[in-house]
């Protein structure tokens, strides 16, 4: 019988369910995360207008660079200060 050595990290994929959906945004704060890609500002500005029409407050955040994962402190700050986050992921 042939046996091969596993070339992978041998990690099992963990399945996680989505966070519970937020029933409404009243009294909540939405993080608007710009990842520093071209035209992200246009998308975020439009979202801010739409959120203000339904009287939802927003806070602005920005990744230092789109080419690396968001720093841990930024992620923790968003989690502590906001109830939801919208990320302008790409141009």
């Amino acid at each position: 019988m042939t046996a091969l050595l596993d070339p992978t990290s041998e990690r099992a994929t963990q399945t996680r369910s989505l966070s519970p959906r937020i029933p409404d945004l009243t009294n909540g704060t939405v993080a608007l995360l710009d990842i520093s890609k071209p035209r992200g500002d246009i998308f975020i500005k439009r979202l801010e207008e739409l959120f203000s029409q339904i009287e939802v407050s927003v806070r602005h955040y920005r990744k230092p660079t789109f080419s690396k994962p968001a720093p841990l402190d930024l992620r923790q700050r968003i989690a502590a200060e906001c109830t939801a986050v919208v990320e302008a992921l790409a141009d």
């Binding site: 019988m1 091969l4 050595l5 070339p7």
Partner: peptide, 19 residues
């Protein structure tokens, strides 16, 4: 002693196809 998981193939399994 090599630590990686041994993936045992069936007698009719082609190792290249198994990969």
């Amino acid at each position: 002693r090599l630590a990686s998981r041994r993936v045992e193939l069936g007698s009719s399994e082609d190792p290249m196809e198994a990969a």
